[in-house]
Each structure stands twice: as C-alpha cells, then as structure tokens.
Design a protein around this nucleic acid. Structure first.
Lengths: 207, 207
DNA sequence: CTCCATACTAAGCGGTTGCTTAGGTCTAAG
DNA sequence: CTTAGACCTAAGCAACCGCTTAGTATGGAG
C-alpha cells in the first residue's frame, strides 16, 4: 500500500468511487470527525463545517448521519478485504507474510478509516450492520484460509488453527488503535515487523 | 484471575474500594452502559435508571458524567496493571507466560471494564487523561521489561524488543474488543492460547 | 427569454442532553 | 421532641441535537 496523494491533503483513493465530489468531501469530513471524536460525539454541524458547507447540506447527499457512517464502514471494510486478499504470492509462508504486511500497514496508513471500521459497528442500524458483518466474516475466513493452507502444506506448525487465525487478525486490527502518524514506526515498518511476528506465531520457517 | 461472585450478579471485586454502596452501584451501572453503548451515547438518565435511582442521584456522588468515566478508567487501569505485574514466577519464560495468561484473560473476563479502559480515553478531560496515561506508561514498561529480561537471560530470541513488546501488549488488549461471553473460548482458554502464541513470538523454548 | 432540475442555505422545530435547584425523607445525636 | 446532616427525588433550565422546510442561486435545454 502506497499513498499517492494529489494536490489536496484529504484526497484519498479509498473514496474514489463516491460521487458527486460534494458527497465525497462530506464522507471524508465525516470519517475524519468520527475517527477523532467517535460517531456519537460528532455532530452533523461538525461534519458540514469541515466539508465547508451548511448543516443542511448533509441531507442533500445522505438520508441520515447513520448513512454516512454506513458508507464509510462499508467501503472501508471492502477496501481492507481487498488489501488482505489481493496479495499475489502462492507459497503459503510468503502469502501469509505478504497479506499480514499489507493488512497491518493498511490499518496504520488508513487508521482514520480503520478506526471507524473497527470501533463504530454498534452505531449502525441492524440492517446495515448485517451487511458489514458479512464482509467481516469474509475477512476472518480469508485469514483462517491462509493459516490452513500453510498447515496443509506442512509449512506451519500450529496446534490451534482457529486460535492462531484469530490472534493474527486481532493483532493487525489493533494497529488502528495505537498507531499515530509521526510515531516511532512507519506503516511499512509495522507491516514488516508484524509479518515476521506472525510467521513466528504459526511456526513457519522464516527465510 | 478467578471470579468470585456473590449473591448479586453485578457485584465485582474490581470496585470494592468504592464507597458508599450507592456510589459503587452507580459506577457499576455506568461501566456497563459505557461498555455497551459508549460514553457519548450513554445518558446520565440511563446510568441512574440502571442503578435504580433518579437522574439527579448521579450528582450526589459524582461531580459530572466525566468523573464517573474517570473513576472507572483509573480503577480499571490500576487493576489491569496489578494483574500484569502480580505474577510470582521468576524464570523469564514462565514469568512472561504467566503475565500474558493473566492479562489476556483479565481482558476477557472483565471485558466490560476493559472496553471502557481501552476505548474511552478520548472522552477524559486533559487532567484526568494525564493521570491515566501515566498508568498506561507503566503497563507498557512492565511488558517491555519482561521481554528484555528474557533476552538478557538468553531465553528469548527477539530482533526488535520494543516491537515485540508492543505486539504482545496490543494482542492482549484487543481481547476486550472481540471477546463475548458464551463464545467459543473461556477467558482461561484465551489466556493459555495467548501465553503459547507470545512465547512463539519471542522465540522462547516452550516446555 | 422561459422552464426546470440540481445544489445549496437560513431559519427553526421538536426532542434530548448534562446538570441544577428546591424540597422531602430518613437516621441518629442532643 | 428538636436538630443536623446525609441521601435522594420532582421539576425544570439552557443548550444542543438530528433533521425539515421554505426559499435562493446556478446552469443547461428548448
């Protein structure tokens, strides 16, 4: 994951699918505010002000504040799933390492989005939550599948596959909580560190 | 950590220092509500109702809603620090394993408190946050110290001590996010699983 | 030009929030 | 009985919330 920012600091390829531009600016403003203060502490006036519009402008593009959250959560989950499963390696050890490197560094680089994704699920309506939970199920299955592939190939030594997969996922997700830009490690360094630690956890021969 | 519940399901040894009993009931009600809905989504009326009192009763015992949060956060941090450092083992490998087992299972067993501790820091006033951050610094130092002790004794193989300590702490803390009672694993089983995974991460000889 | 759809704002509505005030009830000491 | 003080409630206040309504500005089609 490399960040290719344009002229505008808040421009973020995560939201490129969102149109029109005013709706995208609103989403980016909402994601930033939800990430810092949390969904419930953020007012629709905050979001509109950060997007440079009036409070009523929110409701031109979105039905409610919760729908803003849902769009952020849905797109964020879909993006993180594609980051995790988009690795090209086929060797189980290299594949798990690459996936963890990408997934962990995504949670650092895009910690703003990732925090909304990971910590605001309970603010979604039951219908919207169901959509997102399905994406989360696929994320869990992808991690578990990579661990199982290594075990099946005899490359990993794991007494509890489900437990190891849980820990790997948990470790990567929690990066979003503690990471802060300008800290000791870059997102890429975190990815490398975590890839190594995960290979140790699954008992892989780390070349 | 063993749970010794009395006649009342919400009774919790974590809050035994809080008096009078009405103030303790209020804290327990607040912790339960903050844990489920989050600080900002919880109203003082919710808390009072759960404690079986009128909305105004909150302010007999606490200056503000934020002071309720601070007391929960302060006591919760102090408890988790003592759980982490209270292990009696001296051998570095057994000591780290015991500390991780206790710390991870605490985050499961007391996930209600732990969620407030880990996810509501930003709702604290700057003064209260400073108190809590000092406790968090000591928790980090304790974990790092245990990893360093194993390296110094030649029992661990760790290329990046600070990074490994960060990952160990992060892994245990995130238990509070995903754990749910009645799930696949008990807190004790989570402690055992995590102790094993952590010894693998630090390259210890796991007997 | 008119017509019309899109994108936006000013103003404000009903409801909820954290917290306060004024007063009531209980227990125990004098 | 009187008094003091701890504990609690009923009622409500000012501020703020998500969201709506009514109306304005803009730009392209006919």
């Amino acid at each position: 994951m490399r960040t290719t920012r344009g002229e505008f600091a808040l421009l973020d390829e995560t939201w490129s699918e969102v149109t029109p531009p005013a709706a995208r600016r609103m989403l980016i403003a909402a994601a930033a505010a939800f990430s810092v203060r949390g969904y419930h502490a953020t007012t629709t006036r905050d979001i509109a002000a950060q997007a440079g519009m009036s409070p009523a402008a929110v409701y031109i593009h979105y039905r409610s504040k919760e729908e803003l959250l849902f769009q952020i959560s849905r797109i964020g989950h879909a993006t993180s799933l594609s980051v995790l499963t988009g690795v090209s390696e086929v060797d189980p050890t290299r594949r798990l390492a690459a996936a963890v490197r990408a997934f962990a560094s995504w949670h650092a680089e895009y910690h703003t989005t990732a925090r909304v994704v990971q910590y605001e699920l309970s603010a979604l309506t039951p219908e919207h939550l169901a959509d997102v939970v399905e994406l989360r199920r696929r994320i869990e299955a992808a991690v578990r599948g990579m661990v199982e592939a290594g075990v099946a190939a005899g490359a990993f030594d794991v007494p509890d596959v489900r437990g190891a997969a849980l820990a790997v996922l948990s470790l990567c997700i929690d990066v979003a909580r503690w990471y802060q830009p300008g800290g000791r490690r870059t997102p890429a360094e975190i990815g490398d560190l975590y890839a190594d630690l995960v290979l140790r956890m699954v008992g892989a021969d780390n070349g």
